[in-house]
Write a protein that binds this DNA or RNA. Structure first.
Length: 313
DNA sequence: ACTATTTCCTGGATGC
DNA sequence: TGCATCCAGGAAATAG
């Protein structure tokens, strides 16, 4: 399940491969789709755009786009003058998405469409994958979006469990703070007065963005704090240690290309190796690597949580 | 304003 | 072998 390190790995891989390429057209699958923005808005915002950069924000992948100059004289996609969109010679620049064509030039587009910059936001959810491949490659089951690139390749979004999300934005706000950039004061301030278990607080993307179940458990183990501890009862020095652990765990995982559990494969099709470093996650009943006490598994807010009853207080 | 619980979704694992 | 059931989990929605 892609958390911050996996998404970072994927974003870096994608950046290497598609930066500078142009999205010529996009096909978006049948409903119900994993779309957050309406399909026609997504199509309108990303088609004919150059990928300026690909980066990670929390667990989101952000494609920074800039409208590419069209070689054709009349720029049909910019039909702000509302040419009444008659059934005239519709420029077939969107061969694939017939059903959105009528809408794409309609009144839906706000004045914002003047802007040449936009962002395509992809959240992989549990099982989402972005593959860069040849049009000849078999289209996998559960493929929900295909972007045709000027280079002749395709960028596909595949997501069996449909927890992933696609949307567009102008100035995307992922919420929360980046754990790797957080300083102790802002980190501590987020948890002040919260009675929720520290585990839940770490998972709350509005507070800290990018930490998921695996890395929350691993960070708490390294800090010696039980996942059920109320955030408000944790001392300042423990928070300082916790932040250090969070950064340490995330950085180690990024260095190893992320964890690879069941569904996760990075954009190069290779697996990460951090799962070999998991000290508590998925190790219920196995001996603690420090004290040999069997690792316990409990459920907090519906999430399985692993910890060592002796090492963590 | 917070916090806790439920829901979404499919495939793989498990049990009979 | 086949079929039902459970489980994984991020985040939005809903309930308390």
């Amino acid at each position: 399940m892609p958390e911050l390190p996996e998404v970072e790995t994927i974003a870096r891989g994608l950046a290497k491969r598609v930066t500078g390429d142009v999205i010529e057209s996009v096909w978006l699958g049948e409903k119900p789709e994993p779309l957050k923005s309406p399909a026609h808005e997504i199509a309108a915002a990303i088609e004919h755009s150059r990928i300026v950069s690909v980066r990670r924000m929390g667990k989101h992948i952000v494609f920074d786009l800039e409208r590419a100059h069209l070689e054709r004289a009349p720029t049909p996609a910019k039909g702000r003058r509302s040419k009444t969109k008659q059934p005239g010679p519709t420029p077939k620049l969107r061969a694939s998405s017939t059903k959105f064509e009528a809408l794409a030039d309609g009144g839906v587009r706000s004045a914002r469409s003047e802007s040449t910059k936009s962002q395509w936001i992809v959240h992989l959810g549990m099982t989402g994958r972005l593959q860069v491949c040849s049009p000849k490659d078999e289209v996998l089951k559960h493929t929900h979006a295909i972007a045709k690139l000027a280079s002749g390749r395709e960028l596909r979004f595949v997501d069996p469990r449909r927890f992933g999300r696609l949307s567009v934005a102008v100035d995307f706000d992922a919420g929360g703070i980046e754990p790797l950039e957080a300083d102790a004061d802002s980190f501590i301030a987020m948890f002040r007065g919260r009675k929720t278990p520290i585990k839940s607080a770490l998972l709350n993307q509005k507070l800290l963005r990018g930490v998921g179940n695996i890395y929350a458990d691993e960070s708490l183990f390294r800090t010696g704090i039980r996942p059920r501890r109320r955030a408000s009862t944790i001392r300042r020095d423990q928070f300082v240690k916790l932040l250090a652990s969070v950064k340490e765990v995330l950085n180690e995982a990024i260095a190893l290309g992320g964890s690879s559990i069941s569904d996760y494969v990075n954009s190069d099709g290779e697996e990460g190796f951090f799962q070999l470093q998991h000290r508590v996650y998925g190790r219920e009943g196995e001996p603690c690597l420090v004290c040999k006490t069997p690792i316990k598994r409990i459920v907090i807010a519906g999430r399985s949580s692993h910890y060592c009853p002796k090492c963590q207080k």
